[in-house]
């Protein structure tokens, strides 16, 4: 494989509601910032790929409008995935392997505040057998959490500890929204919203955008491996306490040996343990030092941000950082990207 490096990363502040920026302005600002971080200009980019979701944005072809923010003139080589920006980055990485371009730009954008992400995510479920039940992501996550408790693989105190750490780290990350600091002990006293999950076990849903510049020049952390894998859709068709697709993707990305930092796209505190076990890691590694997707959960962006923050970790001295992005109900589809110093 052709070596590919993360040359630049930028994210807009993840806001609970962004009333000021429309999609083109979000895309303009975040892509310009990522290119500036890379020390490159728009004309240096050979391929651009974005990730967004029409239902999140409430209209068809939302990515077409966003293209205005890129200054796509003269016409650019460009593609779009209806997935998290992490998969846009994957497509960009593949394009760099194809070999006709040397710099690629991947970005994602999304706004939770326009509608109900819970309602939208309910519509990603099988339209014949699941969606009509109206069971959204939170009750599904609660089923998974219950399965973990019943299997003796976790306790509610474990979930609370993830919340405490995520909020503490998130409040040190200027791009994540400020959240009320919460000790694990206090978290355990708060009421269930879908037992065994409490309100803070779920994500803080935000608006935002992120962009990453990839280059074949060794100007930043090197992508040591990247792969993704999808599991069965029906929750009843898989063991909810494990993630086979994460293990498969991690192995295909080169394995987790030597990993010292992980950035996990965990939407419910209960899922962190599943991801770590699938990766063959434990909490001796630094877990989501950015605060993770629990405290800054921008749809179609949170996964791409994990790669950006893993790159930042390598820039900050990590030897082997692993980023994880997820899509679909209960960690159905997972991407693993491993970064090392150039």
């Amino acid at each position: 494989m052709r070596p590919v490096y993360v040359a630049g990363f930028a994210e807009l502040p993840h806001l609970l509601q962004d009333n000021l920026l429309d999609e083109p302005e979000m895309v303009q600002r975040v892509t310009a910032a990522a290119l500036a971080d890379a020390g490159l200009g728009r004309d240096d980019v050979g391929f651009t790929c974005s990730g967004s979701n029409d239902y999140v944005m409430g209209r068809p072809f939302s990515f077409a409008t966003a293209l205005d923010g890129l200054g796509a003139w003269p016409p650019i080589r460009e593609s779009h995935v209806e997935m998290d920006g992490a998969w846009a980055l994957y497509e960009a990485w593949v394009r760099l392997q194809h070999g006709d371009v040397d710099v690629a730009l991947a970005y994602g954008f999304g706004k939770s505040s326009l509608g109900s992400v819970e309602a939208v995510r309910t519509l990603e479920l099988d339209p014949y057998s699941l969606a009509p039940l109206g069971i959204g992501p939170l009750p599904l996550a609660a089923l998974q959490a219950r399965a973990l408790l019943d299997a003796g693989l976790a306790t509610e105190a474990d979930f609370a500890a993830v919340v405490e750490r995520s909020r503490r780290d998130g409040n040190r990350n200027h791009t994540a929204p400020m959240t009320e600091a919460m000790s694990a002990a206090h978290a355990l006293t708060l009421p269930y919203i879908s037992s065994p999950l409490r309100g803070h076990d779920g994500p803080v849903r935000t608006d935002g955008a992120a962009a990453i510049v990839l280059s074949t020049e060794p100007v930043g952390p090197r992508i040591a491996g990247i792969s993704h894998c999808i599991d069965a859709h029906q929750p009843g068709f898989r063991d909810l306490t494990v993630s086979r697709s994460i293990a498969t993707a991690a192995a295909a990305a080169g394995g987790t040996s030597g990993v010292d930092v992980v950035e996990l796209h965990v939407e419910y505190s209960s899922q962190e343990g599943i991801v770590l076990r699938a990766l063959g890691l434990d909490s001796s590694v630094s877990v989501s030092p950015s605060g993770g997707a629990l405290v800054a959960n921008t749809p179609m962006v949170a996964g791409l941000c994990r790669i950006g923050h893993a790159a930042n970790a390598v820039r900050g001295g990590a030897k082997r950082a692993l980023a994880h992005a997820t899509s679909g109900p209960l960690l159905q589809h997972n991407l693993i990207c491993i970064l090392e110093p150039a």
Binding site: D22, A32, A72, W73
Partner: peptide, 11 residues
């Protein structure tokens, strides 16, 4: 109005 110029990519 466009928030960003579609061809120049500036605000």
């Amino acid at each position: 109005p466009r928030s960003a110029c579609p061809t120049c990519g500036v605000i």
